[in-house]
Design a protein around this nucleic acid. Structure first.
Lengths: 207, 207
DNA sequence: CGAAAACCTGACATTATTGTCAAGTAATTT
DNA sequence: AAATTACTTGACAATAATGTCAGGTTTTCG
């Protein structure tokens, strides 16, 4: 019998702690989450958490690092060498898929912004700006080529970002409106289709 | 000298408490807000708050009532007897105006949904569904008249709702992306224009 | 194997938070 | 202006949260 994957103790425990923490922070925010709850949730004695992290803030910022890393992923679909129609559609699908499979991280991050991004370091904010600027350049490129109507790229991204985010952050409300107990994979497909259709072709244009 | 408006003590104090509370709840959520902070913020001794409200939960639910009352307001623009193009544009503008002038309430409510709508009573949820259903009927009406492309009204509303909401809830992030210190009235106009343009005419359709 | 390093944890002191109460002051009514 | 009702507040007991530490156990490595 091979020894179990035998993840290094340190790595495995930090993982357990962060996993419990992201759920609690997403549900209750930084100030609302007690270290004791995190400990209870992940089945480790409270004092043990202090062995791995200096404080609650330490746990929180470790999570931010982790989530920021996922920020650019979906954005990679917005590339000059693709046709805008396809690229935008792919972005919407990718972003919704992220919302569906990472809704906890998504809510955690939303919570952080909502309360004023107190723990978002300057470098994170700069990074997000830079990544967005870069993709905005692509949109402008498409516009210059006449492939896209002359929209403001930033408001455009905000629109895509918020619409796709909604299904993670306010999934609860979306489910209510769609009269579902919970959002299903199908609801996400429906959302992707509706968002793409509206953004690409509008709802009011002569067809 | 006329006596000051002499608002009834009860009304005035409850108002003070709720005003301080909505700011704190928006920033820290229910669990993260201490009764003592609310007291400090509104300059009343802590014990006095217990005279007006039974508990922290009492304050919180009073606020929910208040915010729910604003939910339908902007929706009233979506009426069968208006042209969809105008109605939708008016809705977007009204909703953004609400985001701009009531961003705290907006964030408070977002926070509540984000953490699972634990305090949103059944009747509130039913109300929101019903109001949305009603407006969805209008959208379907427009579609039947051929005035609107056949979009799913619920996803359509979610899109409008989330995009306009964004500028309140994530105003901090939006400001960052637009390279502003804070969002100005102008940024909101820009948003209204961009959102309307994209939703109505799409960004990719032949023009 | 034996020493060093890594990890675990119960207990503690400190400080916060909660909701209540009794005794006070101010406003209103008759 | 007396009585009633409304409002205010400092103090209290009970409970909960935080971060630290000393001494224990387990793992790793030479």
């Amino acid at each position: 019998m091979g020894k179990p994957p035998e993840a290094r103790i340190r790595a495995r425990n930090k993982e357990r702690i962060l996993d419990a923490a992201v759920h609690l922070f997403a549900a209750k925010g930084f100030d609302g989450t007690r270290i004791g709850e995190i400990a209870e949730q992940c089945g480790l004695p409270r004092a043990n958490l202090y062995y791995y992290f200096a404080s609650k803030e330490g746990i929180y910022t470790a999570l931010i690092e982790q989530v920021i890393a996922g920020w650019d992923r979906a954005f990679e679909h917005i590339r000059e060498d693709r046709e805008p129609r396809e690229a935008i559609e792919a972005y919407v699908i990718a972003k919704l898929e992220y919302s569906r499979t990472h809704s906890v991280e998504s809510r955690f991050f939303a919570n952080e912004i909502l309360r004023g991004a107190k723990f978002l370091a300057q470098r994170h904010r700069r990074h997000m700006r830079e990544v967005t600027d870069q993709r905005a350049e692509t949109v402008n490129h498409w516009i210059r080529q006449g492939k896209l109507a002359p929209v403001d790229p930033y408001h455009f991204f905000i629109m895509l970002w918020s619409a796709t985010q909604f299904y993670a952050d306010y999934g609860f409300l979306a489910a209510d409106l769609l009269r579902k107990k919970r959002l299903t994979r199908n609801d996400f497909s429906g959302a992707a289709e509706a968002i793409s259709a509206i953004v690409l072709d509008g709802c009011c244009s002569a067809r």
